[in-house]
Amino acid sequence: MGNTAQIRLSDREDSSHPIALTTPDELVICINPHRTGFAEFVGTRAMLEAEGVLPEKVIWPDGFDGKCWNDGQFRYWLRRQRPKGAKGPRKAFQGVDWWMLRWEPVNGPDFRERELAEKKKELEDMIYLRSPAGIRESGIASERYWAAVDDKKFQAFKTCIPGWVKPRRGRNTPSSDGGDSEGVTGGEVAFKAPR
């Protein structure tokens, strides 16, 4: 479900009414968000301490101040964070137990170098697809795709797996052998799973 905390908005007229704030029960881990090259651990102080990602005697910052340090391998940044979806002024969340720890490699490439490497790889892939080997590989993949589309048993099997194929809408059609297709629409093949 979630952890619920009560906060009071101190700069509004309705500050006497606490607002219920729900946060996840488990630590949230974001690896390489927006292709930035760092990782973030988001959760309560107890969650971060239990995960073992903090030094033993870390000094927790006050309010929304941040604490940065470097252990030679990674750069760290610890700060309080407004819970996702929470509304209201920032200072209303100064006492909320919801923290973000970001860490990134000290000697890793910066975001410009990573973006350049991604663009270089994308260009190399496009050039390969236009080469004779790439054209041949695309042709083989296309043949396999259309063979799978034409494989009636495989298409019928896919309908047995929940969520893989959206059910078609439409009217019932007679099967090719003249019999009833048992409610199958749009020319699909009826398939009964073995029990």
Rank of each mutant, 00 (worst) to 15 (best):
residue 46 A to P: 04
residue 47 M to K: 00
residue 48 L to R: 00
residue 49 E to M: 15
residue 51 E to H: 14
residue 52 G to E: 02
residue 53 V to P: 09
residue 54 L to P: 10
residue 56 E to I: 14
residue 57 K to D: 15
residue 57 K to P: 00
residue 58 V to N: 02
residue 58 V to I: 15
residue 59 I to N: 03
residue 60 W to Q: 03
residue 60 W to T: 05
residue 61 P to A: 03
residue 61 P to R: 03
residue 62 D to R: 09
residue 64 F to L: 05
residue 67 K to L: 06
residue 68 C to M: 05
residue 68 C to S: 07
residue 69 W to Q: 03
residue 69 W to C: 05
residue 70 N to C: 11
residue 70 N to Q: 04
residue 70 N to D: 11
residue 70 N to M: 02
residue 71 D to P: 12
residue 72 G to F: 09
residue 72 G to H: 03
residue 73 Q to C: 04
residue 73 Q to V: 13
residue 75 R to I: 02
residue 76 Y to Q: 02
residue 77 W to R: 06
residue 78 L to M: 06
residue 80 R to N: 08
residue 80 R to L: 06
residue 81 Q to Y: 07
residue 82 R to I: 15
residue 82 R to K: 14
residue 83 P to W: 09
residue 83 P to K: 05
residue 83 P to E: 02
residue 83 P to V: 10
residue 84 K to V: 10
residue 84 K to F: 12
residue 84 K to W: 09
residue 85 G to I: 14
residue 86 A to V: 13
residue 86 A to P: 05
residue 86 A to W: 06
residue 88 G to H: 06
residue 88 G to N: 05
residue 88 G to W: 11
residue 90 R to G: 09
residue 92 A to F: 12
residue 94 Q to L: 12
residue 94 Q to C: 12
residue 94 Q to A: 13
residue 94 Q to Y: 14
residue 94 Q to D: 13
residue 96 V to I: 13
residue 96 V to K: 00
residue 96 V to M: 04
residue 97 D to P: 15
residue 98 W to M: 08
residue 99 W to F: 12
residue 99 W to D: 03
residue 99 W to P: 12
residue 99 W to T: 08
residue 101 L to D: 01
residue 101 L to S: 04
residue 101 L to H: 01
residue 102 R to E: 03
residue 102 R to N: 01
residue 103 W to Y: 10
residue 103 W to G: 00
residue 103 W to R: 11
residue 104 E to T: 00
residue 105 P to E: 01
residue 106 V to T: 04
residue 107 N to M: 02
residue 107 N to W: 00
residue 107 N to H: 06
residue 109 P to K: 00
residue 109 P to R: 00
residue 109 P to V: 00
residue 110 D to T: 07
residue 111 F to M: 07
residue 112 R to F: 14
residue 112 R to K: 10
residue 113 E to H: 09
residue 115 E to R: 15
residue 116 L to S: 11
residue 119 K to W: 09
residue 121 K to C: 05
residue 121 K to P: 00
residue 122 E to D: 14
residue 122 E to N: 11
residue 123 L to Y: 04
residue 123 L to N: 03
residue 128 Y to P: 03
residue 128 Y to C: 04
residue 130 R to K: 14
residue 132 P to L: 07
residue 133 A to F: 11
residue 133 A to M: 10
residue 133 A to I: 05
residue 134 G to L: 12
residue 137 E to Y: 08
residue 139 G to K: 09
residue 139 G to T: 10
residue 141 A to L: 13
residue 143 E to K: 13
residue 144 R to D: 03
residue 146 W to N: 02
residue 147 A to Q: 06
residue 147 A to K: 07
residue 150 D to A: 15
residue 150 D to W: 10
residue 151 D to R: 02
residue 152 K to I: 08
residue 152 K to F: 04
residue 152 K to D: 01
residue 155 Q to N: 10
residue 156 A to H: 01
residue 157 F to Y: 15
residue 157 F to M: 12
residue 158 K to D: 01
residue 158 K to G: 08
residue 159 T to D: 07
residue 160 C to R: 03
residue 160 C to L: 15
residue 160 C to S: 13
residue 160 C to F: 10
residue 161 I to C: 13
residue 162 P to R: 06
residue 162 P to I: 08
residue 163 G to E: 03
residue 163 G to P: 11
residue 164 W to G: 01
residue 164 W to I: 15
